[in-house]
Design a protein around this nucleic acid. Sequence first.
DNA 1: CATGAATGAGCATTCATTCAT
DNA 2: GATGAATGAATGCTCATTCAT
Lengths: 211, 211, 211, 211
Amino acid sequence: MPTKKKSQVTAAEPTAGAAARDRRGELLDTAAEVFAEQGYNATTVRKIADHAGMLAGSLYYHFDSKESMLEEILRTFLDELWDGYDTVLAAGLGPRETLEALVTESFREIDRHRAAVAIYQKESRQLLAQERFAFLAESQRRFEKAWLSTLEEGVAGRVFRADLDVRLTYRFVRDTVWVAASWYRPGGQHSPEEIARQYLSMVLDGIAVRT
Amino acid sequence: MPTKKKSQVTAAEPTAGAAARDRRGELLDTAAEVFAEQGYNATTVRKIADHAGMLAGSLYYHFDSKESMLEEILRTFLDELWDGYDTVLAAGLGPRETLEALVTESFREIDRHRAAVAIYQKESRQLLAQERFAFLAESQRRFEKAWLSTLEEGVAGRVFRADLDVRLTYRFVRDTVWVAASWYRPGGQHSPEEIARQYLSMVLDGIAVRT
Amino acid sequence: MPTKKKSQVTAAEPTAGAAARDRRGELLDTAAEVFAEQGYNATTVRKIADHAGMLAGSLYYHFDSKESMLEEILRTFLDELWDGYDTVLAAGLGPRETLEALVTESFREIDRHRAAVAIYQKESRQLLAQERFAFLAESQRRFEKAWLSTLEEGVAGRVFRADLDVRLTYRFVRDTVWVAASWYRPGGQHSPEEIARQYLSMVLDGIAVRT
Amino acid sequence: MPTKKKSQVTAAEPTAGAAARDRRGELLDTAAEVFAEQGYNATTVRKIADHAGMLAGSLYYHFDSKESMLEEILRTFLDELWDGYDTVLAAGLGPRETLEALVTESFREIDRHRAAVAIYQKESRQLLAQERFAFLAESQRRFEKAWLSTLEEGVAGRVFRADLDVRLTYRFVRDTVWVAASWYRPGGQHSPEEIARQYLSMVLDGIAVRT
DNA sequence: CATGAATGAGCATTCATTCAT
DNA sequence: GATGAATGAATGCTCATTCAT
């Protein structure tokens, strides 16, 4: 777990007196990593505790339950995601620029919250049924609305092709972006921005040579 | 598992209209549906049995284990997938036509094996580590090779854009196609071919209006 | 299972019209073999059926239950054992000759009912508690009485040493004789009579050189 | 499992009189008792837990599996048995004295490890096939070698009768000694030494009156 | 804060047994 | 007589969770 140690060190510096990345935060990172790696159901509380160097029971001093850890991980991720998205959406850009900005922002979130995105991608469907995770459904609604209206405005404004099935296109784009969390590795060959550029190039202009 | 497939086929003939598929096949379909719906780990053997109208223990008359059901589901799907893919790849089409055929074939497989594809999508990463599911890794290698070489030939033949990052493009395409299993519903608005056409239109020509 | 086939052949000859060794008898032999080999609890009905070349359920045409097979195996063995013992005990021999005859008869029973003896040795303790196997306790009582009185008469008649603890001696002799079923193999180096002779020589005269 | 034994010993010192044995040790004793009483297969984990006053699942905090409990019970017994045997064998006694010492030591082990001996007696044959219990086979080989060579030296040195079939004698002696665990009750009428004396008297000098 | 020990509900699996065909 | 398919109770084991220390 080199990630953990590093984040500890990094976190210790900027914030002086307030114990910025407290134990709780570390533990959530650890849990997210294991959830993403092995799946939520397959992850036992003991595995998380092992990774954190403590015993399973000790985790319950910090958290109410395994589920509450999951909830907090997803909530934190979605909060930050919407910070970014809302900024983009409030900027009043044109449809194409909005789409570019949303895609780029999404890959940046994957870069910062890879584990949480992977968990979200894999577990959200099951989770949606539960009262506790209603915020996931709410987020999905807002998400869909943001993307659909961007696409629709683009079609209306003749920036995007008139023959576009916007619902289908929305699904294609949404899926590809988030599934990227399953293969993306921070610090790898491509920066989030580079990946976004490549993806946008494909989606906007196609891969076929223009004739 | 060629024996099983054969006996299914044989059984389809004598009994006209009724009970063409044997019990084993029915049970696998049921299991696949539940696995896809709830996830493999979260699916208890009792749930499968409930859906099949029998008791949990009775499943063990037909199958060795929950895991062997999963294996058979995935094997059957991959066998049929490769039947289709191999036909396409052996046809000697150009890169663009090959890509179109592969995408179309993929959406057709999703149409026929929606549950299996969804399971594959969600569980294969965990499964790969197990000896028993080594065939998944093998399939993945062949899959990657087929797609990468198609894209590379397209670039070399100036059918696809020269500035394409083929590995990245491969990932985007692969993900979008298969994730579609998570929202696709057979018998819905769009036929597999229609979805393939829309997707190909986006990937090949882009969604931006040409200026 | 060469034993099975042989016993079938052997049995088919002497008794002509009456189907001497019927299917039931064969099945009991098979079951006894497996019980002796793997232990009663560890023997599944399916294993017995496998050895007999049929399916587990089919055994229930011949027998009420697994337990009834065990009962019949032990009953048959004990009936024959007591035939032999009663003959010896009724012969009015002296204590030493009676002891010799009982030991010899015992090793002969092991030769003829090796599996049953092994089962008896291993399972009787557990079985005793059950109503159904009360005949085992009854047999044990008679057995103990026969041996104890033989030893006591021998001590009284100064044939056996006066300082003998007859209960302890009884236990030693009883155990050694029956445990022999666990290593004895019919058709091996030593005939039952030879083993009896060796054992009697040890017990009666000791292994130490007389000085 | 040397670590465990050590920790037990260490624990015995600081706590004077009370709770010298740790929970693990207690549980193993309980398990051994139940295994001996009901047979390993017939003993459910729930029964052990009942005897220990806890729930079945709780046992798994202390042990990996039912089988690992069995292994530890048998290992502990055999370790202590060989401590005793090795001391005897290293003492350089004559064959008769060695035999006397081995028999006495054996009855002492039965006194101290009655349950383990009973389990060994009943289950070792089945267990031998498993990799995990290979140490049983190893112990058996050493055991046989120790006894056979003692008998052979006795015959060669004219301490034991020249007409002895040593293999057969070995089996008789081995069986009688260990089967005693099935009827021996610690704290009963006879001390282990008394039983050993009686048994040795029978085996060495015979029960017949010398004429 | 953390540990050690336990709980209790649930899980995959086994198996003797039943029964219509 | 035997099969194929099912039952239902039990089994070894896992795991989230609790709590006194």
